[in-house]
Protein backbone atom coordinates (compact mmCIF):
# COMPACT_ATOMS: atom_id res chain seq x y z
CA UNK A 1 0.00 0.00 0.00
CA UNK A 2 2.81 2.40 0.87
CA UNK A 3 4.40 1.72 -2.52
CA UNK A 4 1.07 2.44 -4.26
CA UNK A 5 0.75 5.74 -2.40
CA UNK A 6 4.34 6.67 -3.31
CA UNK A 7 3.63 6.00 -7.00
CA UNK A 8 0.41 8.07 -6.87
CA UNK A 9 2.22 10.98 -5.25
CA UNK A 10 5.02 10.72 -7.83
CA UNK A 11 2.50 10.91 -10.67
CA UNK A 12 0.86 13.97 -9.10
CA UNK A 13 4.24 15.66 -8.67
CA UNK A 14 4.83 15.19 -12.40
CA UNK A 15 1.35 16.61 -13.14
CA UNK A 16 2.00 19.68 -11.01
CA UNK A 17 5.34 20.26 -12.77
CA UNK A 18 3.44 20.14 -16.06
CA UNK A 19 1.08 22.80 -14.69
CA UNK A 20 4.01 24.87 -13.42
CA UNK A 21 5.56 24.88 -16.90
CA UNK A 22 2.31 25.35 -18.83
CA UNK A 23 0.48 27.67 -16.41
CA UNK A 24 -0.61 30.83 -18.18
CA UNK A 25 -0.25 33.19 -15.21
CA UNK A 26 2.37 33.64 -12.51
CA UNK A 27 -0.13 32.54 -9.84
CA UNK A 28 -0.82 29.23 -11.56
CA UNK A 29 2.87 28.50 -11.35
CA UNK A 30 3.10 29.44 -7.67
CA UNK A 31 0.06 27.27 -6.93
CA UNK A 32 1.64 24.32 -8.72
CA UNK A 33 4.94 24.79 -6.87
CA UNK A 34 3.07 25.00 -3.55
CA UNK A 35 1.27 21.77 -4.32
CA UNK A 36 4.56 20.16 -5.36
CA UNK A 37 5.95 21.13 -1.94
CA UNK A 38 3.06 19.72 0.08
CA UNK A 39 3.28 16.49 -1.89
CA UNK A 40 7.01 16.39 -1.15
CA UNK A 41 6.22 16.47 2.57
CA UNK A 42 3.95 13.43 2.17
CA UNK A 43 6.52 11.73 -0.06
CA UNK A 44 9.28 12.14 2.55
CA UNK A 45 7.05 10.72 5.30
CA UNK A 46 6.02 7.75 3.15
CA UNK A 47 9.61 7.07 2.03
CA UNK A 48 10.70 7.10 5.67
CA UNK A 49 8.15 4.41 6.44
CA UNK A 50 8.97 2.38 3.33
CA UNK A 51 12.66 2.31 4.23
CA UNK A 52 11.99 1.69 7.92
CA UNK A 53 13.51 4.95 9.11
CA UNK A 54 10.87 7.11 10.86
CA UNK A 55 13.56 9.75 11.56
CA UNK A 56 12.65 11.16 8.16
CA UNK A 57 9.56 12.71 9.78
CA UNK A 58 11.71 15.52 11.21
CA UNK A 59 12.77 16.43 7.69
CA UNK A 60 9.14 16.34 6.55
CA UNK A 61 8.16 18.68 9.38
CA UNK A 62 10.87 21.17 8.48
CA UNK A 63 10.04 20.92 4.78
CA UNK A 64 6.40 21.82 5.48
CA UNK A 65 7.53 25.04 7.17
CA UNK A 66 10.11 25.89 4.48
CA UNK A 67 7.51 25.33 1.77
CA UNK A 68 5.08 27.80 3.36
CA UNK A 69 7.76 30.44 3.85
CA UNK A 70 9.01 30.03 0.29
CA UNK A 71 5.51 30.54 -1.12
CA UNK A 72 5.07 33.71 0.92
CA UNK A 73 8.56 34.80 -0.14
CA UNK A 74 7.83 34.33 -3.84
CA UNK A 75 4.54 36.21 -3.44
CA UNK A 76 6.48 39.06 -1.89
CA UNK A 77 8.43 39.45 -5.14
CA UNK A 78 5.22 39.86 -7.08
CA UNK A 79 3.85 43.39 -6.94
CA UNK A 80 0.59 42.48 -5.23
CA UNK A 81 1.59 40.77 -2.02
CA UNK A 82 -1.35 39.40 -0.03
CA UNK A 83 -0.55 40.42 3.55
CA UNK A 84 0.07 44.17 3.24
CA UNK A 85 -1.55 46.78 5.45
CA UNK A 86 -4.62 48.38 3.87
CA UNK A 87 -2.96 51.82 3.52
CA UNK A 88 0.04 50.38 1.66
CA UNK A 89 -1.99 48.49 -0.88
CA UNK A 90 -0.78 48.89 -4.44
CA UNK A 91 -3.10 50.45 -6.98
CA UNK A 92 -5.98 48.31 -8.04
CA UNK A 93 -5.88 47.20 -11.64
CA UNK A 94 -6.41 50.11 -13.96
Amino acid sequence: MIIAAIIAIFVVMVLSIVRAIAGPSLYDRILAVNMFGTKTVLMIALLGFAMGRPDFLDIALVYALINFISVIGVLRFSKSYGFQQPDQQPEEHQ
Binding site: Y27, L31, S80, G82, H93
Partner: peptide, 10 residues
Amino acid sequence: ALAKAAIRSG
Protein backbone atom coordinates in the same frame (compact mmCIF):
# COMPACT_ATOMS: atom_id res chain seq x y z
CA ALA B 1 -2.43 34.79 0.39
CA LEU B 2 -2.19 33.43 -3.15
CA ALA B 3 -5.81 34.23 -4.00
CA LYS B 4 -5.61 37.70 -2.49
CA ALA B 5 -2.43 38.51 -4.40
CA ALA B 6 -3.98 37.18 -7.61
CA ILE B 7 -7.18 39.18 -7.31
CA ARG B 8 -5.29 42.32 -6.40
CA SER B 9 -3.06 42.01 -9.45
CA GLY B 10 -6.17 42.05 -11.61
